[in-house]
Nucleic acid binder design. Structure first.
Lengths: 221, 221
DNA sequence: TAGATTGTTAATCGATTAACAATC
DNA sequence: TAGATTGTTAATCGATTAACAATC
């Protein structure tokens, strides 16, 4: 087995590389389900629309995972990428806001299968506090610091209305959360040591819009 | 008023520029709500974590929207960006899949406020077909081509389980849809003339994970 | 062996930033 | 006028791709 632990490439890892790593992982999991035990940078790249060189370069940031002449062994590479991303262990997640979207996401199976576990939800509505949604207990927002500390929660998801998103973010940070996924369509100001990913559904549609509206211009180029 | 219609910069517009355009728009809308009638590339950039040069360069792809010595007039720039993105007119959207997540998104207010209207939902479950969810009628998937054509639907959202996502995508394409937001955690193969945006919630958490796990290494750089 | 494929270097390409004349 | 800020060019920086020796 190739020893992949030594990082061959110095310097910070570009954000784009890390996001492709997640795509490689997802694709490898599909390949395994489809019965492939082995793949290549060419196959992996083609499936995702990247060049083979890109795939190899991305992986080379973190070590040597392939076999010249052979390619990559799917289960092995999956394990390697999981370790790089940190998802070889389970991460506890807190969700703040149990409205339509939060409620729905509490039942989403896709998290646990990638080693994320929503261990607590938070709200201020007395009608939901104390309840259980999809086996997840709902606490009052005031209990956030206590639960985060007790359950070693490092990641949080913000599913509250925009006007209160920043204040909820501040509370998450104060409670010791280290990374936040924000679904509210606002820009959050956070200390630099806290990581942030924003998901704005209207913006995703806008991007599509631009492409569709400029489709013909694009085709003509 | 500055005439911003002539594109000053030739060639295709980078994807990153278009996505920042959406952020500028969102920020401008906040500024207006906060009472600002005017802003500058410096202010807009600072709020979002970009340089002022980046903001001006991005806008320069599409025209001259600012006033030297003054800055940008918020309402005017909002209108200009809307026009660039194509969201100065309403886009009809079809949603396929009315499970937890689809159901929740049918009630999401953030779409209409940016000029997107979900005019129809689709499913194959006889228990939901014929119903109305949040004022949106649910049709059988077989009716997709008819409704897409009748209602001039150009955009679709895939909210079905992963195993059927590709086949639903094919049906959307066959029905004449021109852009798709895919929430299923799979890579879709689409003809090049159809635009695709993928939203994978587990991947968003993975990105966070990597940053948190490498937080100390990053801080030391 | 011949064919396939890796890891890595060098070349290319594209995107960001700095700087500044023009403008208000 | 002096101060502020744009649009744009040139310089810098970083990311992608091509190419190939090394390996199986």
């Amino acid at each position: 087995m190739s020893e992949g632990s030594e990082k061959t490439n110095e310097g910070p890892v570009p954000k784009a590389v890390v996001s492709r790593l997640s795509l490689y992982l997802r694709e490898l999991q599909h390949l395994i389900r489809a019965g492939s035990q082995t793949t290549s940078s060419n196959q992996l790249g083609s499936l995702l629309g990247f060049t083979d060189a890109q795939v190899r370069k991305d992986l080379a940031y973190f070590g040597h995972f392939g076999y010249p002449g052979i390619g990559y062994k799917c289960p092995e590479l999956i394990q390697a990428i999981r370790k790089i991303l940190g998802t070889d262990q389970t991460w506890n997640v807190a969700m703040v806001g149990t409205g339509n979207l939060g409620h729905a996401l509490l039942g989403y199976k896709g998290f646990r299968s990638q080693n994320f576990e929503i261990v607590a939800a938070f709200d201020i509505d007395p009608n939901v506090v104390g309840q259980t949604i999809q086996d997840v207990p709902v606490f009052h927002l005031d209990d956030l610091p206590k639960i985060v500390s007790e359950r070693h929660v490092k990641l949080g998801m913000i599913m509250v209305p925009s006007p209160v998103a920043q204040q909820v973010a501040d509370q998450l940070v104060a409670a010791g959360i280290e990374g936040i996924v924000n679904f509210a369509p606002v820009t959050l100001a956070l200390p630099p040591e806290v990581s942030l990913v924003g998901v704005d559904l209207a913006i995703e549609l806008e991007q599509l819009c631009f492409n569709v509206a400029n489709r013909k211009a694009k085709a003509a180029e």
